[in-house]
Design a binder for these strands. Sequence first.
DNA 1: TTTTTTTATTGAGCCTGTCTCAATAATGAG
DNA 2: CTCATTATTGAGACAGGCTCAATAAAAAAA
Lengths: 234, 234
Amino acid sequence: MAAPATQRRRTRRPRAEREAEILEAARTVFAEQGYAAAAVAEVAARAGVVEGTVYAYFDSKRALLIAVMKQFYEELISETERGLDTVRGTENRLRFVIRHHLDTFARELGLCRLIVSEARPDVALYDEAILDLNRRYTGLALRVLEEGVRNGSLRSDLVPSVTRDLLYGGIEHAVWRSVFTGAPLDAAGLADQLSDALLGGILARPVTANGAADAAVLRLERAIERLESRMGDE
Amino acid sequence: MAAPATQRRRTRRPRAEREAEILEAARTVFAEQGYAAAAVAEVAARAGVVEGTVYAYFDSKRALLIAVMKQFYEELISETERGLDTVRGTENRLRFVIRHHLDTFARELGLCRLIVSEARPDVALYDEAILDLNRRYTGLALRVLEEGVRNGSLRSDLVPSVTRDLLYGGIEHAVWRSVFTGAPLDAAGLADQLSDALLGGILARPVTANGAADAAVLRLERAIERLESRMGDE
DNA sequence: TTTTTTTATTGAGCCTGTCTCAATAATGAG
DNA sequence: CTCATTATTGAGACAGGCTCAATAAAAAAA
């Protein structure tokens, strides 16, 4: 038989570029298949190298995963930081964080599934790196919450860390459900619903809380005016 | 050398019992090591059988996982149902669900980590079973929410499904974080904080919101009426 | 009791996938 | 052009999931 037409020639490339190529390939393969199902051999093939080469750049399959996640998180963090710089007011800032997070999930479903599913399991020692990235990212929202409590926009008895968990946990759950059921993800609508529930709470308010209270005040003011005008008449 | 002292004799046991033993062993091993790290051989050893036997009872390692989760979920569901039967009022019922869920997580951390981490990843076809269990379980809270909207205890514009995600997602996130940081889990305190934030919302309320204001308005209105009637007397 | 049938249980071994390492050849320096 | 450096390779060690023909314990039949 003739030699295979697609024979790969051995070429040397600058370390940085080859590493980037492998990382890019890993990102794709992991996102498509998940961590467990992905084979390092396939990552290698897609990067145009042989399996051994991958291990010359990354210590293990898991190290490759962490590198992929790190890259993703760094992007997410800097985007969110930039965004927060342009939005004013605690409520608006929270709505922005929720909306942006949801948009990102919708756009990069594969990667996000990876993070939700694969990052968490191994409480194994080495995931310090991932925990730290997560802390940095969710720390952005945490600071908005703390600031809100300080400046009086948020309830003074609020526990910011618990609220942050409610926020991110809620998003993840909602997204995951929509992934499972296969329903298309309506990021904008979902963001609004989540924000409304979180910000305003879910309990029905006593009627006086919204407009009714104003109405009562209005009635009082009118009554008093009536009194005043009468008394002034005398 | 002498024959090993711990040589196992081949014994036949009733199907149901052997299956239960294997399941029990799997539950322990999975909970201790997580799915990926656990070896079927170890499950077998702990159940006092050989690897092949495990496969005579369960089709695959994953089927074993699903069986373990099924058993756990069934217990959780029936406990929660029983509990809900004894608690009245939407707010109390929600607080109960949150509290009970947190208690269970605290008590069975290993298994819960398994569910959070291993169940979710594989959107792979066969997890219908798990999805269904999850639906049944979280359906309990969903029904409480829907009922609350109907009877006026909860905001009429609430989206029950989104609220359910906020509820369970928030719990999971909070627990997971405490697992990671190694902090002991204060189920009671955390349950209260989560319930408060979810029920009441996080925004600061105008002072009029809590009953005191209503009472004040009422007193004012009465006083003015008294005044008015007096003046009418003249 | 003895013989036969049934089937739970075994363990050797196949297969896929991660990871290692000595050999190889592409590149840059002298 | 030659040599030294080191990126790249590919064969294979090792681990873990899973299969299957052989085996023997229990039940049924004689």
